[in-house]
Design a protein around this nucleic acid. Structure first.
Lengths: 209, 209
DNA sequence: GCCCCATGTGGACGCCGTCAACATGAAGGA
DNA sequence: TCCTTCATGTTGACGGCGTCCACATGGGGC
């Protein structure tokens, strides 16, 4: 896999990289085969040696985005333990709640930091989220966080099924409304305030007066 | 505004109707100016007498979808009072909670019943949801429902700000994950079960064991 | 040193949105 | 009644897109 092999260098790599860059800038619309060919300095159609069709190209970018999303969530989750004071360790329940909240924060973090990649991801998200929680998958991380909630007694096991979809829906909806929905243009301060309310609501529901 | 006036009948109307039909079947991708021209039996470019560009056409369909969404929410809300037993009227708190839940149910109802129109709506949703709650607007109906929650003491007024965005995010995210996200293919039973969990979570939060 | 086949090229087709120039005919005033 | 005007519809063109095809090229294995 040395560089500049073949006729034109290892094009697949260059092409994928250019695709990620374009998607980062212009979202799904930036993923045009011909435009990318131009950007890499190769003729259109060359892409078809490496990608079956446009969809395959999108899938490659989506995989990158998926990893980025996972990382963003992991970063926030790790923050929970890192920023906890050593002398007064939080209770397991507090920690579990904090980690669940961090999961959501990381999700929205990524959506806002990489709107283009985030939007590409959700035009090509693989259908069946694997049932086995996997820390290297956004949905898996969420499931692990919820399992922890149950383990430490912060969540009634009877209400565990479906909780992952509820949480995912909430942060995903918030992200979509912000990115390409009616909440675009919401200023950053209001944004974080609303996210706080959202995560609180998931945690405590609508508290009566 | 008689029918078949002008050269070709009142084309604007026919065109808009065809657009709605196409969007209903194929979502935003169905809204192609040329394709619609063919469908109406008129030459391409005729559209430009009535719509500035493709975006204007999308806006027309989005308005129809907006009305449909409002109606779906209203229907579910009206069901609350209609199905309540006359002899044992629910408490005001119960009624408010039920109406808020109905608001969410109606939202998802419409997303599932008219996926094409729903998706078009959210490629052209007007930016600033008006601050004044209006019963003829989806966001307004949600706000009214939440205001009722506060009035009857079912929601702490201090937690009212942002609640509308939390609720909207949740049902919107759920709809998007179902329509074009990783939850497409979820069978109807699991679907309604998950929606129940989602709405319960908004109401009561994550209850401890 | 030669041949094969992976890789890249150029052209074509049918879509799309959009602009400009032209055609048509209904409406309304002379 | 006729003639003009202007809204409405048509034809053609341009550039961009994804995709299929036939063809060119040259590096690596024999």
């Amino acid at each position: 896999m040395t560089a500049t092999r073949y006729h034109h260098g290892n094009l697949r790599e260059a092409r994928a990289q250019a695709a990620v860059e374009a998607a980062r800038e212009h979202g799904p619309d930036g993923l045009a085969i011909r435009e990318l060919a131009r950007r890499v300095g190769v003729s259109h159609n060359a892409a078809y040696r490496h990608f079956a069709d446009r969809e395959a190209l999108v899938d490659v970018v989506a995989q990158v985005a998926m990893q980025g999303l996972t990382d963003a969530m992991a970063r926030r989750q790790d923050d929970v333990d890192r920023t906890a004071p050593d002398d007064v360790p939080p209770s397991p329940q507090e920690r579990a709640r904090a980690r669940l909240r961090a999961t959501g924060l990381g999700y929205v973090d990524y959506a806002l930091a990489e709107p283009g990649l985030f939007r590409v991801l959700f035009t090509a998200y693989p259908e069946a989220p694997d049932a086995t929680p996997d820390a290297d998958d956004p949905f898996g991380r969420l499931n692990l966080a919820l399992d922890e909630m149950v383990e430490v007694g912060a969540l009634d096991p009877a209400r565990r099924p479906g909780a992952e979809i509820a949480c995912w829906s909430a942060v995903h909806g918030f992200s979509m409304l912000l990115l390409e929905g009616p909440l675009r243009g919401l200023d950053p301060d209001t944004r974080t305030a609303c996210l706080d309310v959202l995560l609180d609501t998931l945690d405590r529901g609508h508290p009566a007066a």
